[in-house]
Nucleic acid binder design. Sequence first.
DNA 1: ACGATTATTCGATAAATATCGAATAATCGT
DNA 2: ACGATTATTCGATATTTATCGAATAATCGT
Lengths: 122, 122
Amino acid sequence: MNEIVLPDPPWTVAALSALAHEHRLAAFRLLIEAGPAGLNAGELANSIALAPSSLTFHLQALLHAGLITQRRASRHVIYAADFAAMNGLIGYLVQNCCGRDVGCTPACNPIPDTRRWEQKSA
Amino acid sequence: MNEIVLPDPPWTVAALSALAHEHRLAAFRLLIEAGPAGLNAGELANSIALAPSSLTFHLQALLHAGLITQRRASRHVIYAADFAAMNGLIGYLVQNCCGRDVGCTPACNPIPDTRRWEQKSA
DNA sequence: ACGATTATTCGATAAATATCGAATAATCGT
DNA sequence: ACGATTATTCGATATTTATCGAATAATCGT
């Protein structure tokens, strides 16, 4: 079983900042919903009703925090949620910002009923 | 058993913003560590090495988000973490930003081995 | 009541964030 | 190779955030 490596505070601040905005939180939720397949920039801009250049700005923040990934597919650039990273953020919050009697540690996973969350080992 | 009422996105953004800063995250972690007894403004300003007026500024953000409470004790103003609120934030993240296969829902609690977290019913 | 202690409010200022349109880059179809 | 599609970068600008010292408020001891 893999050790769970908790992120450091600077990363945590970056990750929290990345989610701490109406449009970015909306984008991230859409990507979570979309699962590993992800969504392209156009679909996101359309769903959130934001100028393409503004959306790019926000996606950079999520990318920089490592909460989403980016890949190219022909003319499209596809973004997808990084479930392991979100796992790490929640793990940090639970262990550092939630008191000591927590009861359990949740694990994010895109696929129902399949337990295969990898944790990056340092 | 009380229903767990999830916070709405605007509150979530406020709460994430409140935590998304080096000094505020540090302050909040100190308050979590301190438990219900809390810490006064001076102790916090001292620990974080921040001008009193700057600290107040940050505590307002945490207060506004409902993540901490404020009470007066003689000359001191004592701040304490609101565990139920943090519970709500983590609950929101787990349920909305973490995929569907989560496995469990953590519950924040200041006192080890005592299960008495109240949830505000709407 | 008065000086000392503790904390907040108030200005002023510097820095970071968010927004958009126009220009540029990358890729596709044909 | 060329026009069309998709997305990012670049400027410009408005707003918000963060910081601190000085002034104000609240409370304590005596």
